[in-house]
Design a protein around this nucleic acid. Structure first.
Length: 515
DNA sequence: TCTGTCTGAA
């Protein structure tokens, strides 16, 4: 089956299933919370089961915090104002309330603020429990301060708290997110050996994900199989983690087998299970299987694609030159209440650019801003690349300056695109001068950066500049890629220049060609 | 009230 027939089948299928937008955006306005301040600083030791004995401001606070810990505060100042009021409230709110406030901050990803509030609570000797510690430890890990997280573990011990499975799972994730996978593995196994940790499905899934992400896929699969034999069975998240990792390695058949396995065991897949599979099937041009999988997902399993899933499809259509189908997908998304975001638009913009429809891409770029979507460095790179591909080098250069005027900092990929465009139009001197600017701006060239500009120099017969850059590149631990090497060899068949020969020698010495 | 996948674009 061809991509075209799958695409029309899929489109009509999605159109048939079009649903209205969700009407669940009800206002959840909460009245102003009034706090009373008195001088009674006594605090009950345990949370009463009946609300009769709880002062009214505490009940309001509880209701407010329950809602805010689910939805998050509108802004940080509101959260801080509530914290200040809580500090003045007498009797002091329960640790439970402070935990809810900290949880709300976590929802807002205000990890460092949460840690500051925890410190403030500690300095004021406000009662906390192991959950407060767990939240603070988690915040440290999210702020890449796993060292501080461990020092909090130590203070928890000192204060007589017994760390639980949440504490240890959080710390294991912290270590893994800091690429300390050996330490995480040691910590995990030692805790089990010492009987300090009875891992639950989250602990195992965390460990498996960390192993996958740090390149220890085999170990991850071993742990996954071990789990299957244990009392703690893998759940949807565990399967999703492993399926995603297998897909990342392009082993879609293994991933599909695992997906069937989970369904046979009665573990329900979700949108996270399907998205990596859809992505890899698109990438491998296995359209027929893609179509079947989408049908299974939407019709059999009643799982609705989300913005990520749709973007994978938009991107697949865009990359196959099916611009109309990509646009059709966006219409379907709107109809289903899944609104395209910046990533979706970037894919669409790329489709316009690859079709040479730069004007359309620019219109989309401007409209997008009207819709409140802010362009990213990726957006700018797509447009810059589009202009360079069309040979509109001066326009590309103007665009490059304009985005900086608008306050966007170019990244290494933007510079690479620019170098490629300039070299292609024989403005290699300009490229070399931008290369210097780039380095002055603190951006460190990567292998690809060097290779692009070296090729540019070679094309333009700037052999001395090319030679200097080859030496610099090799000294930085990079090597010539296949394109640079073959270009060099091609030139050498015609020109027997000693600089070129030395350069070629240097390239050969630098190890395997990077593909 | 606390822990996990968070997938999509250059």
């Amino acid at each position: 089956m061809t991509f075209i027939s799958v695409s029309s089948r899929l489109l009509s299928f999605l159109l048939r299933r079009r649903i209205g937008t969700s009407s669940c955006f009800q206002s959840l306005s909460i009245g102003v919370v009034h706090f009373h301040v008195n001088d009674n600083i006594s605090k009950p030791n345990s949370i009463p089961h009946s609300t009769h004995s709880i002062p009214s401001p505490h009940i309001k606070l509880q209701q407010y915090l329950v809602q805010k810990s689910k939805s998050g505060f509108d802004n940080l100042d509101d959260a801080l104002a509530v914290f200040d009021k809580m500090l003045k409230l007498r009797p002091l709110p329960y640790d439970f309330h402070f935990n809810q406030l900290l949880t709300a901050l976590v929802k807002m990803k205000q990890y460092q603020v949460a840690v500051s509030l925890f410190q403030e609570m500690s300095s004021r000797k406000i009662d906390v429990d192991i959950i407060t510690f767990n939240i603070a430890i988690n915040c440290c890990c999210h702020s890449n301060r796993v060292d501080y997280a461990f020092s909090l573990l130590l203070s928890a011990f000192k204060r007589g708290f017994v760390p639980d499975v949440f504490t240890y799972t959080t710390l294991i994730r912290g270590l893994l997110s800091q690429h300390k996978s050996a330490e995480a593995r040691l910590f995990f196994t030692n805790l089990i050996k010492l009987n300090e940790l009875q891992p639950n499905v989250v602990t195992y899934s965390t460990m498996i994900n960390g192993l996958c992400k740090t390149g220890h896929t085999e170990m991850a699969i071993w742990l996954f199989r071990f789990m299957e034999k244990s009392d703690c069975k893998p759940n949807t998240v565990t399967y999703n983690t492993v399926i995603d990792s297998i897909c990342q390695h392009g082993l879609v058949d293994d991933a599909l087998i695992l997906q069937s396995e989970m369904m046979e065991k009665g573990i329900l897949p979700d949108v996270w299970t399907y998205s990596p599979l859809i992505r890899v099937l698109c990438k491998l041009n296995r359209w027929e299987e893609l179509s079947l999988l989408l049908e299974q997902m939407i019709e059999d399993m009643n799982i609705s694609p989300n913005v990520h899933t749709f973007t994978i499809l938009v991107d697949a259509y865009a990359k196959s030159g099916k611009l109309d189908d990509a646009k059709q997908i966006i219409k379907i998304m709107n109809g289903r209440g899944e609104y395209p975001d910046i990533v979706t638009y970037n894919s669409l913009m790329q489709a316009y650019c690859s079709q040479g429809q730069m004007d359309e891409a620019m219109v989309l770029y401007r409209n997008m801003e009207c819709e409140g979507l802010s362009p990213t460095v990726v957006t700018h790179n797509i447009l810059l690349h589009g202009l360079c591909q069309l040979g509109k080098t001066m326009e590309a250069l103007a665009f490059f300056y304009k985005i900086q005027e608008l306050g966007h900092k170019p990244d290494i990929i933007i510079y690479q695109t620019l170098f490629g465009g300039l070299c292609k139009s024989n403005y290699v001197d300009k490229a070399l001068s931008f290369f210097q600017t780039m380095e002055c701006n603190g951006l460190i060239p990567e292998s690809k950066t060097y290779n692009i500009i070296i090729c540019g120099c070679l094309w333009n017969k700037k052999y001395n500049e090319a030679s200097k850059l080859v030496h610099k590149m090799v000294d930085c631990g990079f090597s010539a890629d296949a394109i640079t090497t073959s270009l060099l060899q091609q030139i050498l068949t015609k020109v027997q220049d000693p600089t070129l020969l030395a350069m070629h020698q240097k390239c050969l010495q630098s190890g395997n060609y990077e593909q």
